[in-house]
Amino acid sequence: MDEFEPKIVGFFCNWCSYTGADLAGTSRIKYPPNVRVIRVMCSGRVDERLILKAFALGADGVLVSGCHPGDCHYQKGNLSARRRVTGLKPFLEAIGIGKDRLRLEWISASEGPKVAETVKSFTQTIKGLGPSVFNRRRNEH
């Protein structure tokens, strides 16, 4: 059987992380193609619903990335994201999705290499965890 290639949904903030990912691209840094990036205006836009919907639609992992604390274009949007991600983890654990399938990272516009590192290490983590329960269930039927 082919090696499991996880599907990762990345919610990247327009001002820092998305630009950081752009920099990774223009700098020709290689990183795994497993991440599907969705540009949001702020990591604070990513509420529980978006993350849960991503899992329900087949994401094996969800990566939320925003500006470092203090750098948010909207002052405190990234802090909201931090609270939500922290708060959502116990729920993911409790219903069996697993808290390690959700990750938050701070990546600034100048941190192209960090985008690559983050995606690489998260892809490895998810490969270790295997397909998400939603996907396994779907494949059984």
């Binding site: 609270r83 991600v85 701070w106």
Partner: peptide, 18 residues
């Protein structure tokens, strides 16, 4: 409510965990 609010003190907290 903790999931609907943030404080100014958190600006100086750099970790990805609260």
């Amino acid at each position: 409510p903790p999931l609907r609010t943030v404080t100014d003190q958190e600006l100086s907290l750099s970790s990805v965990e609260v």
